[in-house]
Design a protein around this nucleic acid. Structure first.
Lengths: 131, 131
DNA sequence: GTTTGCTTCTGTAGTCGCTACAGGATCTAT
DNA sequence: ATAGATCCTGTAGCGACTACAGAAGCAAAC
């Protein structure tokens, strides 16, 4: 049993974000103490961790909700979960390859600029005369 | 000399985005025809291309504004431009390494889920019992 | 017992980079 | 003259937070 502040410190998730997650429906409506304050148990900490981890993996909140819905019906096939993960995987792979191209271009840009004048600057030049 | 619609088609940038860029100060206030409509020349198309390319490289609009300000003072050293590009480069590199970790984890998750039941599903499990 | 200061509450507004209208004006083509 | 395309401004919406304002409660020092 802990307050929202404790959960926040423990998880590293801002208080406002925890409340936002409740509003957004990825955390259940929190139990309240008689004074109206939210109280959380271990289960809540686990669910918050689940949400955070999914977010870090790039899942959007709609996908997180979908995964949570699956979790609550353990008799179903996990095809849907695996489909979500596959979709996520190809999104990540395409971001990776795009980012690799960008990194190479930025490296070239930085290397080409050895503190000359802006008029000779390859950084700006690279952005201006592209393709 | 062209209309905003033509510039939009030519550049592949939405009309609304072009107007937004003007509002955001990364495109100059457009020249207007007597009827009040925006008209653009080659120079504007070039600047729009600059902005788009910088955005695709992950520069935020504030950085784009900074790069444009540099561009207008060609007598300065290009250290500032190169600093911006270096910052951008390390941001991209850290995103890359994070994404690589995520990709591996997602691959493991997908491989581990061979359409069993949710109760055995490694996708959800991987998100729940992490670290 | 009161004052200080911390935590929490709700509700609303701001962020970034667009995107999508609504409602009106104006252009072009038939 | 009329239809449909294009343009204008202004405002609101998106996602995933983040940041406040103003009120209430709580714990501890004085």
């Amino acid at each position: 049993m802990m307050s929202i502040g404790t959960l926040s410190k423990q998880s590293g998730v801002h208080i406002e974000t925890i409340r936002y997650y409740e509003r957004a429906g990825v955390l259940p409506k929190a139990r309240r103490a008689p004074n109206g304050r939210r109280i959380y148990g271990k289960e809540d900490a686990g669910r918050l961790a689940f949400v955070r981890h999914a977010r870090e993996l790039g899942f959007e909140l709609v996908s997180v909700r979908a995964l949570l819905a699956l979790q609550e019906k353990p008799e179903l096939s996990c095809k849907a979960a695996s489909d979500l993960a596959s979709a996520q995987l190809s999104a990540v792979e395409s971001r990776l390859s795009r980012l690799t191209v960008l990194r190479d271009e930025l490296r070239r840009m930085v290397r080409a600029c050895k503190n000359g004048r802006v008029v000779d600057c390859r950084v700006i030049d690279a952005l201006t005369n592209m393709r």
